[in-house]
Design a binder for these strands. Structure first.
Length: 780
DNA sequence: GGAGCTTCAATTTTT
DNA sequence: TTGAAGCTCC
């Protein structure tokens, strides 16, 4: 019998029970802040002490980050020599590896390309055009959504065409040809040896379904399968887990139905709700002690989430301090809201000695960040906005990756289209479309056309043909070196020889400088990859690098460790925690979103979203709403969010006035209540005097003059004056303020007169070069 | 091939 | 209001 490892003593009773049950299927419902990751990591470590081999364990996560963190934590318990053999990673990465080794069974080549969303989109668009369909009717985004949803329901293109209901629905929506597009999309992917993100899952499912011997092999191999964030799985993922665990049924899924907020991208909360019905005799473990938040925060969140109907009952509790009540403040406008939050943060920093990094401002939509950004810039408080482009979505990175892709899979049409004329080499759109047309006629890939133009219908002049040929030879030349040179060396050469570095280093304009930096960062990540792989005795070639990078979309790691206030959507905040949290914009049509009011299912997801937001807070949670906000260039008036009425009033501290609010008026989906849309009936209190919004906006002294309705003539002359009069006044080391970028320090000056340029390091906006003629810089 | 114009839409996001 | 994307013109 194996010994009971010491580390189990670090767990509480319910955590420990969940960890020690390893004989059959189990569902671990992990309340917010209850030590979910701890249970998963300790369970894996425990399995390893019970004689299970690391390679017999599969652990699936949703993000690379989660996988990496978990692996590190397990390594801390059992050592990296053991941990490295675990089959641990995202669904997509784990199954893409299996697909590569079984590719021939489903008619793919093992070096298949993974199409990201923009590749899929671009292919979709292409097809809509080829079929002569109106892209106003067949919006690429909508088409993709339907194809993706079909794959989610395990429907191949042929299944879809025969699915009466689906085809009928498309027809009713004016898009009867969706199934045709889907079919050709699938054909094209197969022709060029590519799979999109959904295909990675669907093809795994199909591989197992039609090759029982393959399925059995893996089902016998993986004696234990663990799934993190199970509430976020979609139907295919659930089905694959079932295929893999049908033999031993040793499966442990961990998650929190109350934090299921990704329904819009296919996550199916029923997977977790119905788990016990799908696995007969599955044990249920509930982790109900919250270690993160104060009692009042936990209770307030509970009171909210209990208004949902579909959920697994749990009693989440905290033994931390009772803490303060949740603050609720109504403001007159979005600007006042931002001003208020910023002031409140400043006050708390002064009073409690808190750091900027102890604060988060959470909102429903990214566009809400703007108002807070403006205020924070004005007072030069450091912040960081999350969201926006990830590193690998940047054009300069995608271009280089496209070269890599093309070199490894020359049939990859999206990559070919991307780089065939980048940097510019005189192969224009006309030529590209001619190549594409020739390829379609012969049923071959565009690359094949380049390889034997004389045997196709390609009709281009001699000069163009020469350009095409030399491009082809360049790619072939790179491809010939894949096996002899490591990824980093080859990467450097590609960037140089393809003319990318020449293009990017052709200017010192700020955006070029940024691209140079990104490219260098990318190269150094390649170098790191090669060194790591070499150390571990793994292959260092471009093929392995690309496999790695295709499934990464890492938000860039903060190289800068200045403490900053965090601004992000509630979605991105899942899994994080902060001592102080502001949840802003709690208004009808915003939170809950106007677009999520069609069904009870959607409203409940919005309510869970607020639950996630509140449970991010450790000590202090402040909810705000604005009566008026500017949206799409118009003033809009919104009632306070219905969810505010779902929170137990005993746990709320309503600021600035009466805490009584109008009685609940029940509506179909409210679960709780709906606030009165009209009337001046006393609702939630407000802080600050009420005022006419437009006037406030105009009177605001700090606001740049450009916001005022000014005639073109007067605007031009005033900015010209400013440029001429002020330009000489700056010197290195000056503290300055810019209307958009906020506060900063001048680090360099060059040129004079109209071309005088200042380099300014801004607290929040990074380093910029500004032409003084245009930039409205003020000295502090 | 790029600058400048018009048009249109407008959640949430990871792989 | 902002922004992306597509189109036209040089």
């Amino acid at each position: 019998m194996n010994e009971i490892p010491e580390f189990l003593n670090e767990l509480n009773d319910s955590q420990r029970a969940a960890v020690e049950y390893i004989d059959g299927p189990s569902l671990v419902i992990a309340g917010a802040g209850s030590g979910k990751t701890r249970v998963l990591t300790y369970k894996i470590a425990y399995l390893l002490t019970q004689g299970v081999k690391p390679w017999d364990i599969m652990a699936l996560t949703f993000t690379n980050k989660a996988a990496k963190e978990m692996k590190e934590r397990i390594a801390a318990l059992v050592g990296m020599e053991v941990a490295r053999y675990l089959r641990m990673g995202t669904f997509h990465s784990v199954f893409s590896l299996i697909l590569r080794s079984e590719a021939n069974k489903i008619g793919f080549d093992s070096n298949f390309t993974i199409y990201d969303e923009s590749d899929s989109r671009s292919l979709c668009k292409q097809l809509i055009k080829e079929f002569g369909l109106d892209d106003k009717v067949y919006k690429p985004g909508e088409v993709m959504k339907r194809i993706s949803a079909a794959k989610n329901r395990l429907l191949t293109a042929d299944d879809y065409a025969e699915d009466f209901e689906a085809v009928q629905r498309d027809a009713v929506d004016g898009m009867p040809k969706i199934h045709v597009i889907y079919k050709e999309y699938a054909n094209r992917c197969r022709l060029v040896n590519a799979m999109d993100f959904d295909d990675l899952l669907l093809n795994t499912y199909l591989l197992f379904k039609y090759n029982p011997e393959v399925c059995n092999k893996y089902a016998e191999h993986f004696q234990f399968v663990l799934v993190d964030e199970y509430q976020d799985t979609n139907h295919v993922q659930q089905q694959i887990v079932m295929q893999l665990t049908k033999k031993y049924k040793r499966v442990c899924v961990v998650g929190d139905d109350a934090q299921s907020i990704y329904g819009f991208r296919g996550a199916n909360i029923d997977n977790i709700l119905d788990f016990q019905e799908q696995y007969d005799g599955a044990r249920l473990f509930k982790l109900e002690q919250n270690y993160r938040s104060t009692q009042r925060i936990v209770e307030a969140a509970n009171s909210l989430i209990h208004k949902n109907e579909r959920q697994i009952h749990k009693d989440v509790y905290s033994r931390n301090d009772e803490g303060d009540r949740i603050e609720l403040t109504g403001l007159n406008s979005d600007r006042e809201e931002a001003l208020f939050v910023v002031k409140d943060i400043r006050q708390r920093i002064r009073q409690e000695g808190a750091a900027y990094s102890d604060f988060a401002i959470l909102y429903r939509t990214n566009s809400q960040s703007r108002a807070f950004e403006d205020e924070l810039l004005k007072v030069a408080m450091p912040y960081r906005i999350y969201g926006g482009l990830s590193f690998y979505q940047r054009k300069e990175i995608k271009d280089v990756v496209a070269y890599f892709r093309l070199i490894i899979n020359a049939n990859d049409e999206e990559a070919l289209r991307r780089v065939i004329n980048y940097p510019a080499r005189g192969i224009g759109n006309t030529t590209i479309e001619k190549v594409a047309a020739a390829a379609r006629i012969s049923g071959i890939s565009m690359w094949d056309v380049l390889c034997q133009p004389e045997r196709t219908e390609l009709n281009v002049n001699k000069g163009t043909l020469t350009k095409l040929t030399s491009f082809r030879m360049m790619i072939e030349d790179f491809a010939g070196r894949v096996e002899t040179v490591d990824a980093f060396e080859l990467g450097k050469d590609i960037i140089k020889q393809a003319g990318i570095s020449q293009e990017i280093y052709s200017s010192t304009e700020p955006d070029y400088l940024a691209r140079q930096e990104h490219l260098e960062e990318f190269l150094s990540s390649m170098q790191e990859f090669v060194e790591d792989q070499r150390e571990q005795g793994n292959p260092t070639d471009l093929v392995s690098f690309l496999q790695d990078v295709s499934l990464l979309s890492d938000r860039e790691d903060d190289t800068d460790d200045t403490p900053r206030i965090t601004l992000m959507t509630v979605h991105s905040a899942k899994g994080l925690e902060f001592p102080n949290v502001y949840v802003v914009g709690l208004e009808e049509d915003i939170f809950p979103s106007q677009l999520s009011m069609n069904s009870m299912r959607e409203i409940e997801e919005e309510r869970r979203l607020l639950y996630v937001a509140i449970t991010r807070a450790e000590k202090y949670c402040h909810l705000t709403y604005a009566r008026m906000r500017f949206r799409f260039g118009k003033q809009e008036f919104h009632a306070p969010s219905r969810f505010l009425r779902d929170i137990d009033p005993k746990l709320l501290n309503v600021n600035g006035g009466s805490s009584s609010y109008s009685p609940a008026r029940r509506t179909a989906y409210s679960g709780g209540s709906r606030p009165s849309l009209f009337g001046s009936a006393p609702e939630y209190g407000s802080v600050g005097r009420s005022s006419v919004p437009q006037q406030r906006r105009m009177q605001e002294p700090d606001r740049s003059p450009s916001l005022r309705p000014v005639s073109k003539a007067s605007f031009t002359s005033s900015s010209a004056m400013r440029g001429g009069g002020v330009s000489a006044a700056f010197s290195i080391g000056d503290h300055v303020v810019h209307d958009r970028f906020g506060a900063g320090i001048v680090t360099n000056m060059e040129g004079n007169g109209d071309s005088a340029k200042a380099t300014v390091e801004f607290t929040n906006a990074g380093t910029k070069q500004l032409l003084l003629k245009f930039a409205k810089l003020r000295k502090l």
